[in-house]
Design a protein around this nucleic acid. Structure first.
Length: 375
DNA sequence: AGGCAATACG
DNA sequence: CGTA
DNA sequence: GCCT
C-alpha cells in the first residue's frame, strides 16, 4: 500500500465501480420500489428474462429464482449498469449472472439468451406452457411426444378436463386486454354484484392494479362487511353471471367446504372462530360483450376481516409476494399469506389488520405503491 | 449445507 | 404430483 | 444460482 497515496475521495470516486447511492441494495425486493417499465437496463433485463423462463421450462425453479432476484434488482436500479464490478456489488448478482452481464456490456447481447430464442424446442415449450392447465411438466411431455402445435395437442388422449378447456380457449386467452377492455368487464361485475349486494366491495387486483397497460387475465377480490352474507357470495355471484349469459366456463371453482381436517393439533391457528377461512375462488371464462372474446376472470371472495391481506396477496407481483412472505418469516418471525398475517410465537396468533398499509407498518416495510411492486 | 412463499384443488 |  |  505504501506509495499509493490515494485519498478516500479518489478511491471511492470511481463512479464506474460504485453502486448508485439511491439504490436500495437488498435481497428483499419488497423493500424498494420497482417500476413496471424501468428507464434503465431494459435490454439486459429482457435477455435475462429469456434465460429465466428457459430455466423454468426446464424445471430448474431455484435457478430461475436466482435470475428473478437479479432481474428485479436491475429493474429497480436507477441508472444503466456500466461495469462488471458495478453489477457484482448488487445483492443477487453473483459470478454466473455477473458474467452474462459482462458479455452483454462488451457484445450488446447474451449468447445463451440468443441460443434460447433461436431454439425451436424453447419456442414450442413456451407456447405449450401458456395453455391454462399446463405447466412445464406437461409442456415437456407434449414436446417429447412430438407435438408441434396447439392443434396437435388437442388430439392427445390423456387431456385433463381443464387442459381441454385451456386448449379450446387458447386463442382467446392469448389476446391481451387493454385497460379499457378490463374496465368494461369491471363495470358489468360492479353492476351485477351490487344490484344483489349493495354493500359489496369489489377491488381489481393483479397486473391491472400494478398499472399494466395490457393484461392476460383479470383478478377481482370481492368482500362484504357482513360475514354471514359473505357466506354464499361466490355461489350467488357465479349463478347470476351464468344466468345473465356472461360466464361461459368455470375453469376452477373452489368453495370453503367446512373441512379443516387433518392432524390439526386443534384449536390453535386463530384466536377467532375463523378456521374455515379458506378463500373461495372461481376462475372463469367471461364473455366480453363488445368483442365476444372469452376473457379469463378470476373471482376471489374474502371474509371482510381478511380483505386487506387478500388484496395485498393478489396484487403481486409474484416476486413481490414471495419477497414479503420471506421477509415476514426471516426478519419478523411472522407469516404472511392472503388469508392473514400471523405472529409465530407459541400459540400462533393472528395479527388483526384493517388496511393494506397496516401490513406494511406491522412488518416494518416502507409503503410501496401497487404500481411499484413490479419486481 | 440449507434455504429459497404459501396453500388448495383435482 | 402438477397447477394456479 | 445466490445468500447466509
Amino acid at each position: 500500500m505504501e506509495g499509493n497515496n490515494f485519498t478516500d475521495e479518489e478511491l471511492s470516486s470511481d463512479m464506474e465501480f460504485d453502486l448508485d447511492p439511491c439504490f436500495i441494495n437488498t435481497k428483499y425486493e419488497c423493500l424498494r420500489p420497482t417500476p413496471l417499465k424501468p428507464k434503465y437496463n431494459q435490454c439486459l433485463v429482457e435477455l435475462l428474462e429469456v434465460i429465466e423462463h428457459a430455466r423454468e421450462l426446464n424445471g430448474e425453479e431455484r435457478n430461475a429464482l436466482s435470475y428473478r432476484h437479479a432481474i428485479a434488482a436491475l429493474k429497480a436500479y436507477p441508472r444503466n449498469i456500466e461495469s462488471y464490478a458495478e453489477a457484482r456489488k448488487i445483492i443477487g448478482i453473483g459470478p454466473k449472472i455477473g458474467n452474462h452481464i459482462k458479455e452483454f456490456l462488451t457484445t450488446g447481447t447474451i449468447p445463451e439468451a440468443e441460443e434460447i430464442n433461436a431454439s425451436e424446442k424453447y419456442q414450442t415449450l413456451d407456447i405449450f406452457s401458456r395453455v391454462y392447465g399446463v405447466g412445464y411438466k406437461t409442456a415437456r411431455k407434449w414436446y417429447q411426444k412430438g407435438y408441434k402445435s396447439i392443434r396437435e395437442c388437442m388430439k392427445d388422449p390423456y387431456l385433463t378436463h381443464v387442459q381441454r378447456l385451456g386448449l379450446e380457449l387458447f386463442d382467446d386467452f392469448q389476446k391481451k386486454m387493454s385497460r379499457q377492455d378490463i374496465q368494461e368487464i369491471l363495470d358489468i361485475l360492479n353492476k351485477v354484484i351490487k344490484t344483489m349486494y349493495p354493500d359489496c366491495m369489489i377491488t381489481p387486483v393483479g397486473g391491472y392494479r400494478r398499472g399494466k397497460e395490457f393484461s392476460g387475465d383479470l383478478d377481482v377480490v370481492v368482500s362484504h362487511p357482513q360475514e354471514t352474507v359473505a357466506n354464499n357470495l361466490l355461489k350467488d355471484i357465479v349463478e347470476i353471471l351464468i344466468n345473465k349469459g356472461h360466464l361461459k366456463h368455470k375453469l376452477f371453482y373452489g368453495q370453503p367446504s367446512a373441512k379443516n381436517k387433518k392432524d390439526v393439533p386443534s384449536e390453535l391457528i386463530s384466536s377467532h372462530k375463523n378456521i374455515m377461512d379458506n378463500l373461495d375462488k372461481c376462475f372463469c371464462a367471461f364473455i366480453q360483450p363488445s368483442t365476444r372474446i372469452c376473457r379469463q376472470v378470476d373471482l376471489i371472495i374474502a371474509p371482510y376481516s381478511q380483505y386487506p391481506t387478500t388484496v395485498l396477496g393478489w396484487t403481486g407481483s409474484k416476486q413481490f409476494e414471495r419477497s414479503i412472505r420471506n421477509f415476514a418469516k426471516k426478519e419478523k418471525k411472522m407469516t404472511f399469506a392472503s388469508h392473514g398475517l400471523f405472529l409465530n410465537v407459541v400459540p400462533r396468533r393472528r395479527v388483526c389488520v384493517t388496511s393494506e398499509k397496516d401490513v406494511f407498518d406491522i412488518l416494518g416495510i416502507p409503503w410501496v405503491e401497487p404500481e411499484m411492486r413490479n419486481c
